[in-house]
């Protein structure tokens, strides 16, 4: 366990090596939040509610979704694809450590760092913009929202890992990752709550893994037990299981044929 803590600590130091790059990257997250915030503020001008959302709930959706998505989507798995292509993966496999525990250590650090900075950024924006904010009073809801968030994080981790594992067969790994980011932008609810969409489209989306990344955790926080919590949690667990099995198979097949060219 100690060696993985050291890896997590080193990973943290590594992230702070390029400080300007880090600051600029955080700056970008604020832009996205400001853009979405103003878009919805403008839409709610002279309106109290729209698409069954009050202004208070929609602004809370944006802020909570931003926080949850910063945790769910922060990942270091993209590096694995580059390591496979460069042959660097073999360096990890030969070491007396578990490769996946190493990946999880880095993942944990990345999420911790993102969470910390997102909280600070959102706090500052709340002070500056003074949005209406809804606080969930039922403490039991927080447990289910957190559970849903953990499942969403695991789904995002497995999808991202699978995209990186494409590198076992093709060097074209950036295009699938870019398409994945586009799909997340629109289908996971980072732009708008998905339930404002036409009913049929919303129901179809609920069959895909995207809403479970951060729309459902945020929705659970907002609606509490007035939302039927169990069907989305069950579907997200099914997705976890499917993606886990797929990842195991892809990794097994990929590593069997891996030649680590150039090493």
């Amino acid at each position: 366990m100690k060696k993985y803590l050291v890896i997590a600590y080193l990973s943290l130091l590594q992230m702070f090596t390029y400080r300007l790059s880090f600051i600029l990257w955080r700056f970008r997250n604020i832009f996205n939040l400001v853009f979405i915030y103003y878009l919805w503020t403008s839409i709610f001008t002279n309106k109290n509610s729209l698409f069954s959302y009050s202004q208070e709930k929609l602004m809370t959706y944006i802020l909570v979704m931003t926080l949850v998505s910063s945790l769910v989507l922060s990942t270091r798995t993209a590096e694995i694809g580059a390591d496979i292509i460069s042959g660097n993966l073999i360096n990890y496999l030969l070491k007396p450590i578990s490769f996946f525990k190493l990946v999880l250590s880095k993942e944990f650090t990345d999420k911790l760092l993102n969470f910390t900075f997102s909280v600070i950024e959102i706090f500052l924006l709340v002070i500056i913009l003074k949005p209406h904010f809804f606080i969930q009073a039922n403490s039991q809801v927080y447990f289910f929202a957190f559970l849903s968030f953990l499942i969403g994080s695991f789904i995002a981790f497995l999808i991202s890992l699978n995209i990186s594992l494409i590198a076992f067969w093709s060097s074209e790994i950036w295009a699938p990752r870019w398409i994945y980011s586009i799909l997340i932008w629109f289908l996971a609810g980072s732009f708008f709550p998905l339930d404002i969409l036409p009913d049929l489209l919303y129901k179809i989306l609920l069959l895909t893994p995207f809403p479970y990344l951060f729309f459902i955790p945020t929705k659970i926080y907002l609606d509490g037990f007035s939302l039927n919590i169990f069907p989305p949690i069950v579907i997200s667990l099914v997705w976890c299981y499917i993606l886990f099995i797929v990842t195991k198979k892809v990794w097994k097949n990929g590593i069997k044929n891996y030649n680590a060219y150039g090493r």
Partner: peptide, 22 residues
């Protein structure tokens, strides 16, 4: 530092994909 600067420029321009009056 180029990559993040370009992306910040792109983020700024994206803010103008809708009317500036928002």
């Amino acid at each position: 530092e180029i990559d993040n600067i370009i992306m910040i420029y792109r983020d700024f321009t994206k803010m103008l994909s809708l009317p500036v009056d928002i």
